[in-house]
Write a protein that binds this DNA or RNA. Sequence first.
DNA 1: CTGAAAGCGCTTACAG
DNA 2: CTGAAAGCGCTTACAG
Lengths: 339, 339
Amino acid sequence: MTTLKDIGEELSLSVATVSRALNGFPEVSLRTRQKVRETADRMGYRPNRVAQRLVTGRSGMVGMVLKIKPDMTADEMFFEILTRLTAALSVRETDLVLAVDQGTDPVAPYERMIERNILDGFILNAPQTNDPRIAFLRQRGIPFVVHGRAAPDADYAFYEIDNQAVSADAVDLLVALGHKSIALINGTLRHAYAADRLTGFKTAMARHGLRPQATSEAVIESHGYTKALAMLAAGTPPTAFLCASTQVAAGVVRATADRGLRIPRDVSIVAHDDAHSQVRAVDFDPPLTVTRAPLRDACEPLAELLLDVLGGKPAPECQRLIKAELIVRGSTGPAPKEA
Amino acid sequence: MTTLKDIGEELSLSVATVSRALNGFPEVSLRTRQKVRETADRMGYRPNRVAQRLVTGRSGMVGMVLKIKPDMTADEMFFEILTRLTAALSVRETDLVLAVDQGTDPVAPYERMIERNILDGFILNAPQTNDPRIAFLRQRGIPFVVHGRAAPDADYAFYEIDNQAVSADAVDLLVALGHKSIALINGTLRHAYAADRLTGFKTAMARHGLRPQATSEAVIESHGYTKALAMLAAGTPPTAFLCASTQVAAGVVRATADRGLRIPRDVSIVAHDDAHSQVRAVDFDPPLTVTRAPLRDACEPLAELLLDVLGGKPAPECQRLIKAELIVRGSTGPAPKEA
DNA sequence: CTGAAAGCGCTTACAG
DNA sequence: CTGAAAGCGCTTACAG
């Protein structure tokens, strides 16, 4: 392996100058800089990251813990996220070390990774309300960025879509179309995003003087199906549904079909689309109106924000609240005339 | 962060002695060793891996490239392999850095990772015959271990099941049951394991003076189905099938059912089972006779072997050829009486 | 049994 | 614009 010293000897320069030249310091003369670059290339120089890391006090590695399903099966599109995150970190000279969480204690895998003493920080995902992992990392003073935020008053770095606005935008659209009986089929409330969606939903409904209906359970087709079926059979059935995901929307669609109702004539549907599920919004008939915020879009900002945090940027400047797009398609229409 | 120096000052010892004590060197007196250990614990000492790595010349990181499917979907059970491998490396103070191969050049991702100059070695999987990645790493002198071996005369570290024996064992079992017309529904021959299975099959059949029938394609249900259907309709239909996987076996079962044949009365089936597929051998009716070698069992030895290689152990001592189990269940029986 | 010293390959004040 | 020096935190011959 060729080192700075080798290059220095070749050119009769000190390692200090070679180092500065290679790092593009302006005080080094252009001629020297060019000569050094050239020689470095010729000699196949690659900086020793470990040495760089020792002197800078950073390891150049960040950790992420993957929560996996009990059957140890992989999440759809997991690899795309992994790829994008790896790439985004890689251009920042940072490596990603993965761990898998299979136990009951959500904090344990983080402790294990910290124990190893080689990580500069963490990327967390899927935060829950009062997430113990966040409390733990903060208490230990370990830098991290969260994909999502555990509470509206988060004082740490995060990248998140505005989930209250997700609900509010959908409600506003439906109300403008004349809907008054609107139901939210939401995710489990221990997930922070679902709590935000519910808050946004209730607030928006109240603003319009309407009474909210909501159910919060697992984001799966059957949740949409069973709850929509029950709601449609009730006294004042919803004329519109907000669905936590396209999977949930698929269940709602099935329920409306079972009841002999038509979309959007009898029932309107809006879903949130993270562009991650195998169930594609445009493949519905009619295609789904959605609030859309691709999960994959988070990778680049997450890497950027984490590096900012590691660089000492204050937390309030490392927070990104993104608006989801509202894409109107065929699944929403005017409210049916009242009987 | 507390360092060796801190501990040394606390105890009025040199960093050298503290280092030796903590690393359990026998020349340090027991009393000193205990005192140092105690103080280190009390002060919350964690060795700085980066410094250790600089001085030992190793980064403590190894790479693995995942070849993913075009739809970027995850392989079944991928997380279990990832977990086990991470755990096996972790106890050896080694971290795993993943990259994803999405391109056409199989070597490119390795070049990119080497470029970064922080890896001690690689774990390769799914070797192909004349695998260019192996040629590349060897030419560059980069340590690696292969899960599988690209050729029977491999001169590098590998962990692999004896795929020739997999076929031979199955053939021997079937011949003992009186079968003479035996077909192999094999994986694509560019995969080294499939080439070995075919060789083993032909050799074993020749040894018994029988004529081999084989087809080598993708390891999917439809391959088993279409080929078995065609073979069963031919002049001398097989009375037994060797299947590359449980998926392939499912196809063969479907084909025999279509032909109105019974298992094992009319047709016997042996499959190879890596205990990785969602299609479980014991769930068949009748349950499948298999050669069994769980993929997950490779994780621990792979980690061990790679660390051996990094430690300078010669390649011939870093090769493991494992016999798969032969588990006889209901899908094999005596050959039908000849008509 | 323990210590002083050199060194791993880099970066970065401090001088000049 | 360039160099000599110190230092990041560890390990390990070399002495004693």
